[in-house]
Amino acid sequence: MKYRSVFDIIGPVMIGPSSSHTAGAARIGSAARSLFGRKPQRVTITLYGSFAKTYRGHGTDIAIVGGLLGFDTFDERIVQSLRIAHDEGVEVTFIESDETPDHPNTARLLLEDELGTAEVVGISIGGGKMEIVELNGFELRLSGAAPALLIMHHDRYGAIAKVATVLAENKINVGYMQVSRKERGTHQALMIIETDQSVDKKVQGEIEKLEDITSLTVLS
């Protein structure tokens, strides 16, 4: 079932004009910010398909930047987001791609600062819902609807079991799980776990300390 809640249908509360091109775009920006974990200094946003063609009229650009600044879909500051980004020292560049994407409403976001980078690809699937389909070259599907752990780990037996054990000991149920790697033998894999309960700092710490775990990002 793609749509699970009554508020997927009656909602979101949002700044117009388009649930897919404005609200969904803001949610992609906001998810990218969470995945990066902090405010970026530079962002390069590549727009594809219908996003590339109509973004100025729909405010797709300002919505993505609003999301990157941490604004929700209904935050009226979205309208001023390009100016606010400038004032806060976030450098934003837009690229209109004429490549044909798999999904008509696709955006690729490259977030950077002196500590690192994150590259996130999101699609806006309608009614304000979005999915993150790529993170740093790893394919995945992430809706942002449930709390999620994104764990970079050594591509080796037992890594998944160790994480699952920590969750089980803390009575955290796994709703959905996926494992992604670029190709076999690259030694790094990404494990994505959507949980029914939120995962607090203590549990996050336990997971980070595990052998074979490189990094942990929490999307709540």
């Binding site: 009656i10 509360v13 949002m14 117009g16 004009p17 649930s19 404005t22 609200a23 209904f74």
Partner: peptide, 18 residues
């Protein structure tokens, strides 16, 4: 019309049909 002017609305089910 409020939606088209970038005002606040509820998507029902989308903004285009709000």
């Amino acid at each position: 019309e409020v939606n088209a002017s970038m005002g606040t609305i509820i998507a029902t089910p989308t903004a285009g049909a709000c």
